[in-house]
Design a protein around this nucleic acid. Structure first.
Lengths: 227, 227
DNA sequence: GTGTCCATTTCGAGG
DNA sequence: CCTCGAAGTGGACAC
């Protein structure tokens, strides 16, 4: 990785046109060739960037000119990033090697796995028919059945918002036309459900269930701890 | 801005739990207090981060210990980022000042302008009634009329996905209750329309039109080039 | 401040 | 490779 602090002017042309007037910024070049220009503010998103794969052309100019270097970063497509440098404050090469990578826990997939193992926590007597039950417009997270045999479609979100209710509504609309399924109920399950989502769900006749992730994890059959 | 290259182990706990094993990485601290940890790969997104506003607590340890420093970055909420540092390769403070900011020239808005000028490219005989036609739940991109006088609501996206179809559906639902408009048709226009969005649109009786941005731009009356 | 929607989204999974 | 949906999405704008 190369870290350069330089006074530069940047122009991006591609899916849109963007211009950065001359100012001091951080230019980060990663070993895959990607370039990003950061200011000292505004979360982690850079002001301008070019994603890999791309190629970098550096044009040197005389020290007596306004610009000492002009970088042109081009994509396979029509994207071009031009960095015009008037002065360089520092320039550092760092060898970071390959990162061992990020381990995540607590995303929607985990929640889905846990609820697939314990569908009765959503409603007593509920049993799993299929995970990722496929419909023409996408997969339903869980297809379950009540003790009386009625189908229940479950949409699982980490955070329950209006979009999730809309999604489940679409699935229900489609599934209810399938004579093999017949009447299908809906359950919207999430760790937190926003009031507006709850209101919409109620209006649509969809049941809302808030899920405790830690509690579910505690219910896991700890098979691997038996010995 | 502070740029530190250090061998560190990182743990995030908050909306999810994420762990980074010990490795050499770039730690960027911006003047607003935000912290991001970058590897030498991936796009511009850091491996882990904490957005401002947040506070940083640095705990120094003896040089004879495994860890020489432990950083704890906390949010107002329950988010915590813990950076355990075993060695520091470099540590640089840079004063970038306030960035003059980015000037963008967008695409989506332009697409709307172009289609407003050439509504007949969406369907022969179509004419514009109003751009950004306001409804109670938001503005419809284009309100048009067929040769026979029927209203047509047009939703424009750069990339047509299911959300856009939902949006147009909501507008249509509302507009069709307005006796002044009567029957209202829907057109979903985008540069690319995903198959699933197309399926949903078809199911809802909404017409899909893919738009060629360059072709439309070519049709522009080059008024400003007449003189 | 909350809600909504766009994004040069990025990222990961699955066919 | 493309397609699709999730994200600790971030960011802007309206209300």
């Amino acid at each position: 990785m190369r870290l350069m602090v330089a006074t530069c002017e940047v122009d991006y042309s591609g899916r849109l046109a963007a211009h950065l007037p001359m100012a001091k910024r951080l230019v980060m070049v990663k070993s895959d060739g990607s370039v990003s220009i950061h200011a000292d503010g505004g979360a982690y998103k850079p002001l301008n960037w070019m994603s890999a794969p791309c190629s970098l052309l550096v044009e040197n100019r005389g020290d007596d000119e306004e610009l000492i270097q002009v970088w042109t970063v081009t994509n396979r497509g029509e994207d071009t990033l031009r960095i015009a440098i008037s002065s360089i404050e520092s320039d550092q090469m760092v060898d970071l090697g390959v990162d061992p990578g990020l381990v995540k826990d607590g995303v929607e997939k985990h929640l889905q796995e846990l609820l697939a193992e314990h569908p009765a926590t959503l409603r007593p007597g509920l049993s799993l028919v299929q995970r990722e039950y496929f419909t023409a417009i996408g997969p339903v997270d869980l297809l379950c059945r009540t003790a009386t045999g009625q189908y229940v479609a479950v949409e699982i979100k980490r955070r329950g918002e209006i979009d999730g209710v809309e999604q489940l509504t679409r699935y229900l609309e489609l599934m209810r036309r399938d004579p093999l399924l017949g009447a299908v109920e809906g359950i919207f399950a999430a760790q937190i459900i926003r009031p507006q989502a709850r209101t919409l769900a109620k209006d649509r006749g969809i049941d809302c269930v808030t899920v405790d992730y830690d509690e579910l994890r505690g219910m896991e059959p700890d098979v691997d701890r038996l010995f």
